[in-house]
Design a protein around this nucleic acid. Structure first.
Ligand SMILES: [Zn+2]
Ligand SMILES: [Zn+2]
Ligand SMILES: [Zn+2]
Ligand SMILES: [Zn+2]
Lengths: 170, 170
DNA sequence: CAGTGTAATGTTATACTATATCATTAGTTT
DNA sequence: AAACTAATGATATAGTATAACATTACACTG
C-alpha cells in the first residue's frame, strides 16, 4: 500500500527543479495531480482530456507533450513504449542510480506494476551482447504480463503485439 | 557471420504458411526481400518507400502494415517499440519456445543485435512481480546500448527517450 | 470446369500520435 | 525598469496506424 499523495510528487518535483534551475509551474503541478489521479497508463491525448476535465484552465496537446517530456526527464513520469502510454512513477523516491525500472503490464486490463531491479541484472542479460561489443545504457524493461485478477478470467490468450489483439485496448 | 539468404526466409515462410493455411503471396515475398536487403530497422512508411524503390509493382502503406503484421505473427519480423521501427528476425530458425528475443539497440547508429535468451531469465526478472500476482507472458526485451563502433566516438551521451535526443534519429 | 467461399490486397478515408515554428507570457537577474 | 531566459500559447504540419468496403486471387466443392 502506497501512502503517497499528489502533494508528495509536487514536493519532489519542486526539489528537483530547485537543483536544476527549472521551475515547477502551475501547469506542471496540475499535470502531476492528473497523472496521480488517473493511475492507469494513458496516451498524451487522453491525458489532455483528463486534464481538461479535472483542471479549470484548459490545456492543449502540444503543452501536454512538453510537460510529459519534462516530467519524464526528471523521472516522475514514464513512457511505456510497448503500449505507447504515459504513467506516473510509482517509486519517485529512494531510487539509486544502479537500478532501472521494470514494468509489468497486464495485457488484459492494463494495470501496471513498477518494480526497481538492479541494473546488474540487465547487464547479465546482455552478457552475450557485451561479447559482441555492445554495452547497455540505461533502459527500462517492459514485460507483457497477466495480473492476478485477469489470470482468473482465463478466456483469451493475449499476445503482445500483433495477431491476437488485446480486447481491452480500444 | 550469417550466411542466410532472402530465399531462406521465403522458404521458412512458405513452410509456416503450409502448416497454417495462410499463403506466402508475391507481395509478402517481396517484403521479405526488402526487409532482408535494408537490414536496419525502418518505419512502416520508410519500408513502403524502400519497397517501391526495390520492387516493380507499387504498394501502399496500408498493405505494408498488413504484411508487417502477418510477418510478425509468424515471427519473421519484429516490431521494436522503443524506436517504433520494424526489422527482420535475425534468428528465424532454431528458436525454441522457451526463448525470447533480446534486442540491443545502438542509440547512436541504430544498429541492432538480436540474441535469444532463456525465458527463465525473464521470469527471474519478474520474480518480485510474481509475488505480487503477475505472471510474465512472452515479451521481447529492448535495451538501449552502444555498439562497439559508437563506443569509440564518445562525444555524446544518448539517453533512451526524452531530454538528450538521439542525434542520428532524423 | 463452373460455382462458392475465404484469404489477401486495393482503395479511400480518417483517426491517432508527435513535433516544428513563431508569438507571447512570466519569472529572474542586473 | 531593462534584459534575459524558461515556459506556454497557438497554429500548422508531419508521421503512424486503422477502419471500412470493394475487388481480386486462390482453394475447394460438386
Ligand atoms: Zn519510476
Ligand atoms: Zn489485469
Ligand atoms: Zn527474431
Ligand atoms: Zn552504433
Amino acid at each position: 500500500m502506497n501512502t503517497m499523495d499528489a502533494r508528495d510528487f509536487i514536493q519532489i518535483a519542486k526539489n528537483i527543479c530547485e537543483k536544476t534551475g527549472s521551475r515547477l509551474t502551475e501547469t506542471r503541478q496540475h499535470m502531476l495531480e492528473v497523472l496521480f489521479t488517473v493511475e492507469t497508463p494513458k496516451s498524451a491525448y487522453e491525458l489532455t482530456d483528463d486534464y481538461n476535465r479535472l483542471v479549470n484552465s484548459p490545456i492543449m496537446a502540444m503543452s501536454v507533450y512538453r510537460i510529459l517530456n519534462f516530467l519524464a526527464s526528471i523521472r516522475l513520469v514514464h513512457h511505456l513504449h510497448s503500449i505507447n502510454k504515459y504513467i506516473i512513477c510509482k517509486h519517485p523516491i529512494g531510487r539509486s542510480e544502479d537500478q532501472v525500472p521494470l514494468f509489468l503490464i497486464c495485457t488484459s486490463c492494463q494495470q501496471i506494476e513498477e518494480v526497481a531491479i538492479a541494473a546488474d541484472l540487465i547487464y547479465a542479460l546482455s552478457d552475450h551482447a557485451e561479447s559482441r561489443g555492445f554495452i547497455s545504457a540505461g533502459s527500462q524493461i517492459e514485460l507483457n504480463s497477466l495480473c492476478k485478477k485477469c489470470q482468473s478470467n482465463i478466456h483469451q490468450h493475449s499476445p503482445g503485439d500483433f495477431n491476437g489483439q488485446n480486447p481491452t485496448n480500444k
